[in-house]
Amino acid sequence: MTQSPTVVEVTAGAVSLGGRPILRGIDLEVRRGEVVALLGSNGSGKSTLVKAVVGLNPTTSGEIKLFGTPLGDFTRWSRLGYVPQRSTIAQGVPSSVWEVVASGRMSHRRPLMPLRRADRDAIDAAIEQVGLTDRIRHQVSTLSGGQQQRVLIARTLAGRPELLVLDEPNAGVDLASQYDIAETLAARAAEGATILVVLHELGPFEPLIDRAILMRDGRILYDGPPEGVSAGHDHGHHHHPPVRTPIGPRVVAPLDGA
């Protein structure tokens, strides 16, 4: 494993959003073929970090390299596949499952060139991998949350990337779809893909994670085998003290805050 080339390399990375420092002193290395989970509570900076890795958040200092190339000079975008946490795919004008997944081929296509055979095959294969072939002509906004998440993953898989970066693919997704998503990613990992996935908790992903990174307050707290995360009984969030009210549990929820 240590002989594999580095796919993602962050050196002394720092990110500020709107003038407020979010990430400090991040050193991160993901090697080819690794499946790495990025864990932490809400606000720990894990989403900010992956957005910086895929070039959506500029770094204020430090350096990020993808496949050995500094992000500023990186042009081989077809090697990268990003799955955002929230997407706008279901907003505005109706769009079909096929159309959204087809936009995952943009890194392979040149403007004004028609769709090639290879593009069509990759789109169909990606939709099949997430089990949505029977909904290929359906309108994305009429699908369930779990199905929409699978559309997002298919869109990325259609680009046949070597590196997959997923931001909370389980958020708002039913348990059955979570297992389906984990299975799809396990298949990609078995084929040699490198995966960096932001998770709130390992859940159905546990069997495929090689390494876990725990973040808190914009820093990396732990980096090692996934068993080590729970050994310290630190799940990256604070448990709330039990609050009992005679009214009912639904009333408790707003008091929990975010």
Partner: peptide
Amino acid sequence: PQLFAVSNDEDFARTSG
């Protein structure tokens, strides 16, 4: 295809180059 990708999901379009 390009204009759809950009209007449909700007972040994703950016990571597609």
